[in-house]
């Protein structure tokens, strides 16, 4: 009887044991399938970077970076494009950062959730979804034609400033909200005004997060093509003032590659462009890591 009972238990247990074995196997299979997906994603990154760098790095010499292009970009360097890109993105940050940070300060420190904050947030979120070509068309209609700025650093910079505004608002808001409430209470209890508290306490504490957002925006702005091509023009001359047209690195690369002017110089330009945006992004990531380490988030 005991033997029969034992047999029953064993028979009952067997499928369960096989089940556990199968579950473990499924678990392992899932792990490797998902790891493979990650490997696929990363392999694209490695492929794109190496594809561009292998062909482009030999072209990137000191003279390539410091000479003006000759013969439509067939020969010579890319100096005007480097200067143009710096001027354009610099202007965009100069305009976009104060506006974005001010918006974030207003949303976090000066108003509570209500009609006005909802409208402001709706504007920022919707703006983030607008495709870059729409920004380009708008910049062309508004800055280039309506305000008469022409194809210029000013038009392109203003267009890019609007484009990066939502990112700066969002990241600054997050950074400001992460500042502990006690900081504000202590500052206010010491007799500081709200604005003094913002300037001397809240913003310094939120600075790493704000800078991270600015850098992410910078990376986006440097690589932007569609919004820039209609607003900043495509001139190969070195810009002398803010009203001059420029051809930024991505636009220069696009023209060289698309019209088959010079593949060697196209790869060289792409290398400079890609290295720049990757460095900016990596720096931003390091900042994020250090910042979240300090704030003790996660």
């Amino acid at each position: 009887m005991g033997g029969a009972g034992h047999e029953t238990v064993a028979r009952a247990r067997e499928p369960a044991r096989r089940d556990i074995g199968m579950l473990k196997r499924t678990d392992r299979i899932a792990f490797w399938v998902f790891a493979a997906a990650t490997a696929v994603a990363l392999s694209f990154l490695v492929f794109i970077i190496s594809f561009v760098f292998v062909r482009g790095i030999p072209r990137v010499t000191w003279s390539f970076l410091t000479e003006r292009p000759r013969d439509m970009g067939r020969a010579g360097g890319i100096l005007p494009s480097i200067v143009g890109t710096i001027a354009l993105t610099g202007l965009a940050l100069l305009i976009g950062t104060p506006l974005g940070v001010a918006t974030a300060v207003y949303l976090t420190e000066y108003t509570r959730e209500g009609m006005s904050s909802r409208v402001i947030r709706f504007g920022a979120e919707s703006l983030a979804g607008v495709p870059s070509i729409i920004f380009g068309l708008f910049g062309f209609l508004f800055f280039v034609i309506f305000l008469g700025f022409g194809w210029s650093i000013l038009s392109g910079g203003l267009t890019l400033a609007l484009m990066i505004l939502p990112t700066i608002i969002r990241t600054s808001e997050e950074a400001i909200r992460a500042v502990p409430r006690e900081y504000r209470e202590i500052s206010l209890s010491l007799g500081a005004s709200r604005w003094q508290t913002v300037v001397h306490v809240v913003l310094p504490a939120a600075l790493p997060g704000v800078i991270t957002g600015v850098m992410l925006s910078l990376g986006r702005a440097v690589g932007e093509t569609a919004a820039v091509i209609f607003t900043a023009g495509s001139s190969l001359r070195l810009p002398g003032s803010i009203m001059d047209p420029v051809r930024t690195l991505p636009v220069h690369f696009y023209v060289l590659a698309r019209e088959g002017i010079s593949m060697a110089n196209a790869y060289g330009t792409a290398t400079v462009l890609l290295a720049t945006v990757l460095l900016i992004e990596i720096a931003a990531n390091i900042l994020i890591a250090r910042f979240s380490g300090h704030a003790g988030r996660g």
């Binding site: 990154l45 569609a226 991505p250 462009l273 992004e281 990531n285």
Partner: peptide, 13 residues
């Protein structure tokens, strides 16, 4: 962070 680097690559590239 590496996967997100993909989003930094400009669309022309």
């Amino acid at each position: 962070a590496l996967v997100e680097l993909l989003s930094a690559v400009p669309s022309v590239v």
